[in-house]
């Protein structure tokens, strides 16, 4: 009963998303608006400005290096959160055990 309702709603969502996606420029054409002057600039100047043939490496560690600093901070924050979640409750449990015992 509940599952049937979900299937109907999600089929509606699928039709909606597909009908809006079919208005996008077709896959793999060079005239795609995302292939604009920014991408062309990176492709043309990365060897000259960063001396790195790998354009993606030039983007993430030279042009947008500050962005990557934030990315590594996300990793650091996630590991700090995981360790704190997994360790604080242990201490609480030990305290509870002491009270019960």
């Amino acid at each position: 009963m509940k599952k049937g309702l979900f299937i109907v709603v999600l089929a509606g969502l699928f039709v909606l998303l597909v009908s809006s996606i079919l208005k996008m420029p077709s896959l793999g054409s060079v005239d795609n608006p995302s292939y604009n002057e920014t991408a062309t600039y990176y492709l043309e100047n990365s060897v000259e400005e960063a001396h790195a043939p790998n354009v993606i490496a030039a983007i993430i560690t030279d042009y947008r290096a500050f962005d990557t600093l934030g990315e590594t901070t996300v990793l650091f924050t996630s590991i700090a959160a995981v360790i704190s979640v997994l360790s604080i409750n242990h201490q609480d449990k030990k305290k509870g055990g002491d009270i019960n015992g």
Binding site: A50, A52, A57, D62, A65
Partner: peptide, 9 residues
């Protein structure tokens, strides 16, 4: 080569 890119990598 490429300055800081290998160091950061």
């Amino acid at each position: 080569s490429a300055g800081i890119i290998p160091l950061l990598t």
